[in-house]
Computed example of a mutant assay.
Amino acid sequence: MSERTPGWYPNPDPNGGIRWWNGSEWTENQPTQTAPVGQFSIPGEPLNAVDPKSRRRLVIASIAVGGVLLVGAGIAVGASLLAGDNGALTAATPSASRESVERTTPAAAPPRPTPEAPPAPTLIAVGQTLESQNFHLTVNSAQVLERIETTDGAPLTPAAGTQLVLVKTTYTVTGPNAVDLTCGNYDTFIRGYDSDGGQMAETFETPRIPGNQPCNEKIVTGQTAEWNFAYQMTAGRQPGALVVIDTNFYGANAWGEEQLLSLR
């Protein structure tokens, strides 16, 4: 209530009626019907003493039936008109509850819960093995190179503003599918990232990188082979990590969780 300007408001006491609020607390002032019809005599608070800032005044219009004011018989006939801040008159019925007349402050909305971040994957160090359901994968090294020699044709060279990264790994098949590491490994999905979190670009030159098996030559369950591949990375950065997903972990085409293999 402390935020209200001085004025007449519904009486908070069980007696009802209206009561004067002086801006900080309720006073004992309540209207008594001793003045001419249409006005109230306010003990200690003349009508012209109402704070003009509130621009709120009360006018009681009593209706006389047959020249007799019907009060003592228990029949109250009348209407209260409250002048709002814009000067318009708004009808307020005496039977309305105080709760419906009083200004109420809307309850503050509950704070929105902060979504919890998923737990970070474990970063598997260079030389340690990721043991997934369909394969085991170990990063042996990650080198930043000016060029990468190939088994067929010209060496790989970086585009302007980039540098090459040669990643050497060891791959073991543990699932039921025979795997072509060089030209079609569909059990494993890999993305490479640099030390600043930028994604490295695949060169798609796996068949020409030394150490890899010939294209279309598969390895079967229990067999291990080298698997080496190259990326292009923004110049001046360092290799970061591989994001590896077992794409058949929960059955055909049902991807497992992301796993991180460090490249440093």
Rank of each mutant, 00 (worst) to 15 (best):
T90R: 13
P36A: 15
T114R: 10
L81T: 10
R55T: 11
Y171F: 09
N86T: 14
V173P: 02
G84H: 10
P155F: 10
R56C: 13
S62Q: 15
L145K: 05
F40N: 04
T150E: 03
A35W: 08
E116Y: 03
L123V: 13
I42K: 03
L164P: 01
L123N: 08
K53V: 14
L70A: 10
T170A: 08
L81I: 11
T104V: 14
A92R: 12
A142G: 07
V144K: 07
P46K: 12
E149I: 00
I63F: 05
E102D: 12
S54D: 10
A88H: 13
A142V: 08
L70G: 06
V139I: 13
A35V: 05
N140K: 13
T150P: 01
V165L: 09
V101H: 02
T122D: 11
D152V: 04
V68S: 09
V139S: 06
G44N: 13
V68L: 11
T104H: 13
I63D: 08
P119F: 00
L137E: 04
H136Y: 12
R147Y: 07
T162S: 09
G161W: 01
E131R: 11
E131S: 12
A91G: 12
N134I: 08
G72P: 05
A91P: 02
A160R: 07
V165K: 06
G74M: 02
P158I: 00
L81N: 06
I42W: 15
L156E: 08
I148M: 04
Q133C: 09
V71I: 10
G67K: 07
V68M: 09
S97G: 15
S80D: 01
P118E: 04
T151A: 01
Q33T: 11
H136D: 15
G127F: 03
Q39V: 10
G87W: 03
A117M: 05
